[in-house]
Each structure stands twice: as structure tokens, then as C-alpha cells.
């Protein structure tokens, strides 16, 4: 049976996060940038499509684009985002590990899970 990993107590986290806060902020910024890029691309496409369809007035194009073509694009954006977000986390881990020496605590999985 698996147990939930124990969270450090609130006061411990508070003490330590004031130190790590600047680091976490930089991680948040890079993750938010990745998220906003993906969302911006989606939003731009989606806002213009109905106007485009309206101007075009051809129902077959609507069927093809919305019925089939858009799903690979959605999965593609998701794929790109996940790779970007995981790279951001790897870079961050390297930053954290790099500062206090190359040794890794025993038993740690190599990267993530």
C-alpha cells in the first residue's frame, strides 16, 4: 500500500520558502509564459475562426476544420506545452542541484518519476 508523502509542517515551509521564494518566482514566471503562449495561440485561432467561417460562408470547410482538423492541432499544442513545462522543471532542478554540488541524495529517481 502506498502512503501519501508527508508534507513538512507549515512553519518549516514558511521559514524555508522565504529563502527559496525568489527561485520559485522564476520557475512560476517561466511556467506561466509557457502556459500563456499555448493559450494565446489557441485563443487567437479560436477568436478568428468564427469570423473566418462567417465571411467564407462554405459549410464544407466548417465540417472539415471543426469536425476533424482541429483535434490534432489541440493535441499538438498540448504536446508542445508539456514538453516545455517539463523542460522548465528540469532546468530548475539543475539550477537547484547545481548550486550545492553534484551529489544527489540517495534513492532519488533520476528525473521526475
Amino acid at each position: 500500500m502506498h502512503r501519501l508523502p508527508g508534507h513538512p509542517t507549515q512553519s518549516e515551509i514558511d521559514e524555508q520558502t522565504t529563502l527559496g521564494a525568489a527561485y520559485v518566482r522564476s520557475l512560476m514566471r517561466s511556467q506561466l509564459r509557457a502556459g500563456l503562449t499555448a493559450f494565446g495561440f489557441l485563443a487567437l485561432t479560436v477568436v478568428t475562426l468564427p469570423l473566418f467561417f462567417d465571411a467564407l460562408g462554405n459549410a464544407s470547410v466548417v465540417w472539415i476544420v471543426l469536425g476533424f482538423a482541429c483535434y490534432p492541432v489541440l493535441v499538438g499544442i498540448a504536446w508542445w506545452y508539456v514538453h516545455r513545462a517539463e523542460r522548465n522543471e528540469r532546468d530548475f532542478a539543475r539550477l537547484v542541484h547545481g548550486v550545492h554540488g553534484p551529489e544527489r541524495p540517495p534513492g532519488r529517481p533520476a528525473e521526475g518519476d
Binding site: P5, P8, Q16, A21, Y23, V24
Partner: peptide, 16 residues
């Protein structure tokens, strides 16, 4: 936002 593979302590120490 911190990946689970990193601990709060580590990040704090790195920052320190």
C-alpha cells in the same frame, strides 16, 4: 509550483 522531485529544503538551501 515546485516539482515533487525537489524538496522545499533543497530549494531553500540552494537559494541560501
Amino acid at each position: 509550483h515546485l516539482p515533487e522531485s525537489l524538496s522545499v529544503q533543497e530549494t531553500a538551501a540552494a537559494a541560501e
